[in-house]
Structure formats: structure tokens, C-alpha cells
């Protein structure tokens, strides 16, 4: 950090430094501009709100995954955990029968609890079982999906009553509820990571585990806690998805772990841990959804969509990295 000094105050703006910090935002603006030129329907308020709402489920899950990746770990199980949490919530709602707010709360809490439990199990197996998180969560990906199929009997749970889907379709003024949830969640996460001691430990443990341990922090417990939190957030994503679909699908959120990781990496978080910012993960998630939206608006053919989507993600990463290189640095 530059020390505040009246003597060496630089009158020139440091564009390189700004680009370094805000590269992903520039990429977002570039994409928005490109889409606005390509499709007259893109820059409508409804369309823009749609994009953020559509991104909200993946973005909620990505908060937890960002923290896991900051610790130099990985979580591949989030899609399955989200599906199971969503199914349990739907199951409890069905059992309650009706839009009683107490049942509603109970159902949501049940979903979050399942997510937290599986997340904590991921953490415990990684830390105390000594198995790499890549393998642990790959196993949980399979177990979670199996449990979801078992719980639902392979069939969608639907007919959940109107009150629940308000979580996804309600509005506060002109703003959809999922967007409010996103803003609150991301603000809390950013405050937690950047201003609290625990948050700073997460960054530090990602780069130098030993130093943090020597400072008297129980890194093992910290890790298990972060995995559990990632599970809770995956659960929340699953609950939101169930509200959005007004049903729990046994195959819901299949493959989402890749979307989530793509969002985190697009946001510039290093897969080696220790570097990254949660707000940029949100931008990453929105860019991903923006690409899908653009492909639909332009009616791109199915096979070309896969090629285009992958290509555009790589292009976004290249752009972001080359903007960083303007200043030669690779630090946050």
C-alpha cells in the first residue's frame, strides 16, 4: 500500500493501476456495448433485470466457492448439494401443505441445514481425512445427486403453493427479490472478507498456511467452517432455484459446479488461492449469463452456441489478463 505523503503526491492518474483493479468491469462494459450494437432488444430494462435474476442462483453459490478457492481448495459438489437442498425444501413444503409462513421458514431452514451438513462433511473429510478436496467433493457430487434422486424418487416435486415462489418472483418496488438477495449477500461477503479478521485469515491461509497457523489460528477449523459455509450457500442457491422453478427437479443444477468455477475464475480469483475479490465473482457470473442471453437473442444455432460460449469465456479471460499486463503486474 502506498503511504500517504503530501510530498510525493502524483498529479498523473495511474491508469495501469486502475485497469488492474477494474479489468473485469471493463470486459463487462465491452460485452454490454457489443451486445447493444448487435441486438436492439438487449438494452431493455426488463432484459437487463432478467439477466441478473437468471445469474442469481449461480452467483449465490459462487460466493461460497470463491472463499473455498481463496483457501486453495475446490468444491465440485455444489450443484448436487444445491439440488438436494432444493428437493428437501420442496419436500418439507409439501408435507406442511399450505403457505403458512412458519412452514415456509422451516422448509428453507431445512434446505440450508442439509447444505451446511454436506459442506461440513466435505471440509472434515478434506482436513481430517487427509483427502484432497478435489476428490472429496467429486465423491460428494455423486453422493449428493444420488441422495436427491433417492429423496425425489426420480420425479419432480411440484405444486408448492404460491407463497414460496415469491422468493424468486416477488418485487420490492421495481427490483426483483433475487437481485436484492444478491446485493445483500455480496455486500456481506465483501465486508466479511475484507474487513474482519477471519476474512483476512482466509486470504492469508490460501497463500501461507504455516504463517497463519504460527499466528495462532486453527487453520483446520477455519477450512471446515468455510466448506460448511459454501454448503450453506449452495443450499441457498438450491432453495432459490426451487422457488424459481416452483418445483424441485431431481436433475436440477446438474453441471453447475463448472458454471460456478467459471464465474469465480472470470472474476480473477486465483485457483492457487490467496488472491481474488468476491464482488468480481458477481461480475463473472453476470458475464456468463450475458453470453447465454446474447446467444438466445441472436438465435445462434445449437452446436455453434457451445463453441461460441466456450470461445467467449476464453476471450474474456484473455482480455482481462491482457488488461492486467498493461502495468506488468499480476497482483490484485
Amino acid at each position: 500500500m502506498p503511504e500517504p505523503s503530501t510530498l510525493s503526491a502524483r498529479p498523473r492518474r495511474d491508469w495501469g493501476q486502475i485497469a488492474l483493479a477494474y479489468g473485469i468491469y471493463l470486459v463487462l462494459l465491452l460485452f454490454v456495448a457489443a451486445m447493444a450494437l448487435l441486438s436492439p432488444n438487449f438494452l431493455r430494462v426488463t432484459n437487463l433485470l432478467n439477466i441478473v435474476t437468471q445469474a442469481s442462483t449461480v452467483a449465490v453459490i459462487a460466493v461460497g466457492t470463491t472463499m473455498v478457492i481463496l483457501l486453495a481448495e475446490i468444491d465440485l459438489s455444489v450443484g448436487s448439494v444445491a439440488a438436494l437442498a432444493g428437493a428437501v425444501t420442496a419436500g418439507v413444503l409439501k408435507a406442511g401443505g399450505g403457505a403458512d409462513p412458519v412452514w415456509l421458514l422451516l422448509a428453507v431452514l431445512a434446505g440450508l441445514a442439509i447444505g451446511t451438513a454436506l459442506g461440513a462433511l466435505n471440509g472434515a473429510l478434506t482436513v481430517w481425512g487427509g483427502i484432497p478436496s478435489f476428490i472429496v467433493t467429486l465423491g460428494m457430487l455423486s453422493v449428493g445427486r444420488g441422495l436427491t434422486l433417492l429423496y425425489t424418487g426420480g420425479r419432480p416435486i411440484f405444486g408448492l403453493g404460491g407463497g414460496f415462489s415469491a422468493m424468486a418472483y416477488g418485487r420490492v418496488g421495481p427490483v426483483p427479490v433475487p437481485i436484492i438477495i444478491l446485493v445483500v449477500l455480496y455486500t456481506l461477503a465483501a465486508l466479511f472478507l475484507h474487513t474482519t479478521q477471519l476474512g483476512r485469515y482466509i486470504y492469508a491461509a490460501g497463500t501461507n498456511r504455516r504463517a497463519v497457523a504460527l499466528a495462532g489460528v486453527n487453520v483446520d477449523r477455519l477450512k471446515v467452517g468455510v466448506f460448511a459455509l459454501a454448503g450453506t450457500l449452495a443450499g441457498l442457491g438450491g432453495v432459490l432455484l426451487t422457488a424459481r422453478l416452483d418445483s424441485a427437479q431431481p436433475t436440477a443444477a446438474t453441471g453447475w459446479e463448472l458454471d460456478v468455477i467459471a464465474a469465480v475464475v472470470l472474476g480473477g480469483t486465483s485457483l492457487y488461492g490467496g488472491r481474488g475479490a468476491v464482488m468480481k465473482t458477481l461480475v463473472g457470473a453476470i458475464i456468463l449469463q450475458l453470453i447465454s442471453n446474447g446467444l438466445n437473442l441472436l438465435n445462434v444455432q445449437a452446436y455453434w452456441q457451445q463453441i461460441t460460449k466456450g470461445g467467449v469465456i476464453l476471450l474474456a479471460l484473455l482480455l482481462e489478463r491482457s488488461i492486467r499486463r498493461v502495468r506488468g503486474g499480476d497482483e490484485m
Binding site: S39, N41, R244, Q249, A252, A253, N296, N299, A302, Q305
Partner: peptide
């Protein structure tokens, strides 16, 4: 007027249709 993949999936069906509705109001 529009022909888009949605992966046999309800969530994708919902998102894709939202987008198509924007393009062909």
C-alpha cells in the same frame, strides 16, 4: 422464429424462453 437449445432442463427452458420473449415481444 426462434430455435434454441435448453438441455431438456426446466431451469434452462425458463431462462431461454425469458430471453426469447425479449427478442420477439
Amino acid at each position: 422464429i426462434a430455435d434454441q437449445p435448453a438441455g431438456f432442463d426446466q431451469a434452462q427452458g425458463l431462462n431461454v424462453m425469458q430471453n426469447i420473449l425479449q427478442a420477439h415481444q
